[in-house]
């Protein structure tokens, strides 16, 4: 790890003032479960680290007029223990508990889950987000069994966020502070597919801090669930996940949100599958059909065709779980 300056501000205003115009100037430290390892591997070497765990504005989960506000520094453990989140948003609980090491849940934060960098081994080995070597991506002809099945060139990594798909399905917003003010962006727009090696995979500038998440009040009436498919029960990222949120009307689907995780550089919305469910009740057949729609446009690489089936199963089971038929 390179040496760095360290500051531990107590307000968001002070924190953003300590950041700089480039990621090399300063980076934000919350749970540290991603940043510290990346600094050890020299994938990130900021000149300054700004600890935001001491900022009280970033803590706590509270009901506001616009919805449920979850502070960016709330840990995954705190999130998963919260009574209101447990009763209203089982999809978030499953996603948070899917981060299956208690130590990581005790350290890692909600904001950190959204901002963590991809686990792509080319990225982690210093080839950048687009895994480039000699002007070409290493992914298509390389080891790609955990890479994307949606999105295609030039980015093949998968978003590592566990909460992202669940929050996107619930229609949540990310609140972001910078030295010049506060802005808000939909979770599904917060994640972006980089076009060039210099782009970031999230809509965040180096002098900005994610301050929290707001889940709209209307989401509380949705039937929601997450289903994860993973190789190991513990200490691993999922291979494919699906989060769904259904608005029901008289036993039929009025509107559906289906967002898959770990299959694309961003949480990946399955719009055709969402439309296919409107006006239908959720049963084996309709869930199976929606799941087929969800993976229809998948473009697997040489080693990850199996992920198409996993994603399909995740969508089907998440739908059945949300409808209480799992």
């Amino acid at each position: 790890m390179e040496r760095f300056e360290y500051a531990s501000p107590s307000t968001v205003k002070d924190a953003t003032a300590l950041l700089g115009p480039s990621w090399n100037d300063a980076q934000v430290l919350a749970g540290g479960t991603d940043l510290i390892s990346m600094m050890k591997d020299f994938v990130a070497s900021p000149k300054r680290v700004v600890n935001i765990k001491g900022i009280s504005e970033l803590a706590g989960i509270l009901t506001t007029r616009s919805g449920l506000r979850i502070g960016a520094a709330v840990t995954l453990d705190e999130l998963s223990m919260h009574p209101l989140v447990r009763s209203e948003f089982p999809s978030l609980i499953t996603a948070a508990l899917g981060v299956s090491s208690p130590q990581i849940r005790n350290m890692g934060t909600v904001g950190g889950d959204l901002c963590q960098r991809p686990r792509c081994w080319y990225f982690r080995s210093g080839h950048g987000l687009l895994a480039m070597q000699d002007g070409k991506s290493l992914v298509p002809n390389g080891e790609n069994r955990y890479h994307a099945i949606f999105g295609g060139a030039p980015a093949y990594f998968v978003s590592a966020s566990s909460l992202g798909p669940a929050l996107a399905a619930l229609g949540a917003q990310v609140t972001i502070a910078s030295p010049s003010g506060v802005r808000s962006v939909a979770v599904e727009k917060f994640f972006v597919t980089p076009k060039t090696a210099n782009d970031r995979e999230i809509d965040l500038h180096p002098n900005e801090i994610v301050t929290g998440i707001v889940i709209p009040s209307s989401a509380a009436s949705s039937k929601n669930a997450t289903y994860e498919v993973r190789q190991k029960e513990a200490l691993d990222w999922p291979l494919a996940t699906a989060s769904v949120a259904l608005k029901m009307s008289g036993g039929k689907v009025a509107s559906a949100r289906i967002v898959m995780g770990h299959v694309a550089p961003t949480p990946w919305a399955a719009s055709a599958a969402e439309k296919s469910l409107v006006g239908k009740s959720i049963d084996e057949a309709s869930a199976e059909k929606a799941a087929e729609e969800a993976v229809r446009d998948a473009q697997p690489l040489s080693q990850n065709g199996y992920k198409v089936q996993l994603a399909k199963v995740a969508v089907k089971r998440a739908l059945l779980a949300a409808a209480g038929k799992a």
Binding site: R3, E5, A7, S8, D14, A15, L18
Partner: peptide, 17 residues
């Protein structure tokens, strides 16, 4: 950063290291 910061008002948060 540091040069710019010191030219402005004293930073509210101490920076160490």
């Amino acid at each position: 950063i540091l040069v710019a910061e010191e030219a402005q008002a004293a930073p509210a948060t101490p920076v160490s290291g």
